[in-house]
């Protein structure tokens, strides 16, 4: 009871903001999983690359800096697809997971090399910092970036729903996610559908990079690493097999993290990660398709 008592409006607003960011990341991970059956462990490093781009273009006008961030992240996504995902397309999901794990470390180390040229770790990204200012709404201090995060998430998810539901490429992506082999036999171009999913997931990663950099303007090589792990947990718990359950899982874990961190003193949350990961194991064993999914489908390989 007393937990609820200390959850004030401020905490709730911030929690919704975090949930929105994690939902965007969940969609990015879920889109690529849908067409490739690949859990991209290196998704956080795409966000990290975007954050560094913002830091290194701090002297540019904000719009230019953000445009550069999108360009770099999308280019890196496509490069990753071409160099890593494509040769692995016939590999097992476990091999793909290990490989993206290696790619994550690779990119993080590259970032470290770039970062420590000036003998300090961490690069400030100041150009987007003004977005972090608070404005007062109905007596609650809301940082502008929280509004941006929620707004971007709503718009992005809405556009994505339209794209998947109303366009030919969207239809083909849904079919590819359900049964790629049959989709190809019908003439659906695998390369095009995959590239499309990867670009969309890159756009989302870039948006997340901007939002997270505003909130945390000191960019380091492990930027977004913890967030990615938490989002992966949310995605698996929600149900990675379907985009909407994955998204819901991402939002839920972001919101829950925000509320718990806001409501409980630090010394009471130190074992929170253990509880969260224990929940993951429980869900994988009892409901492999995810908490929000219908039925008991398993998180298994498809041929």
């Amino acid at each position: 009871m007393n937990v609820l008592a200390v959850v004030d409006a401020q905490t709730l607003v911030d929690a919704v903001g975090l949930g929105a960011v994690y939902a965007l990341m969940a969609v990015g991970i879920g889109l690529v999983f849908g067409v490739l059956r690949l859990v991209n462990f290196a998704y956080g490093q795409l966000v990290m690359a975007g954050a560094y781009t913002l830091a290194f273009t701090s002297t540019w006008p904000v719009a230019g800096s953000i445009a550069a961030c999108f360009a770099v992240v999308i280019a890196l996504s496509l490069l990753m697809e071409r160099a890593v995902f494509r040769p692995l397309r016939t590999s097992s999901p476990a091999v793909m997971l290990v490989t993206t794990f290696a790619v994550a470390f690779l990119l993080q180390s590259v970032a470290l090399i770039v970062d420590v040229r000036d003998d300090t770790i961490g690069e400030p990204a100041s150009s987007v910092a003004p977005l972090n200012q608070a404005i007062s709404l109905a007596g609650v201090d809301v940082r502008k970036v929280t509004l941006v995060a929620v707004g971007v998430a709503i718009v992005a998810l809405g556009l994505l729903a339209l794209l998947l539901g109303r366009t030919t490429i969207g239809l083909q992506m849904r079919a590819a996610a359900a049964d790629f082999r049959t989709a190809r036999l019908l003439g659906v171009r695998a390369d095009r559908v995959i590239a499309f999913a990867v670009v969309l997931s890159g756009i989302l990663a870039a948006a997340v990079a901007v939002i997270l950099t505003v909130q945390n303007p000191l960019v380091s090589p492990d930027f977004a690493l913890k967030d990615t792990i938490v989002v992966l947990v949310g995605v698996v718990v929600g149900g990675i097999d379907r985009l909407w359950t994955a998204t819901l899982g991402g939002f839920a874990i972001g919101f829950a993290t925000g509320v718990i961190n806001g409501a409980l003193p630090t010394e009471q949350t130190v074992f929170l990660p253990s509880a969260v990961f224990a929940l993951v194991i429980l869900v994988l064993i009892l409901r492999p398709a995810g908490l929000f999914a219908r039925g008991r489908g398993a998180l298994v390989e498809r041929v």
């Binding site: 074992f271 990660p273 253990s274 990961f277 993951v280 994988l284 298994v300």
Partner: peptide, 21 residues
């Protein structure tokens, strides 16, 4: 009881729990 991707993620969760504790 798990294999494939589920085993990969569940064992990762074990790593996180033990590290946290």
């Amino acid at each position: 009881r798990l294999s494939g991707l589920a085993a990969g993620i569940a064992t990762f969760a074990v790593l996180e729990i033990v590290h946290n504790l």
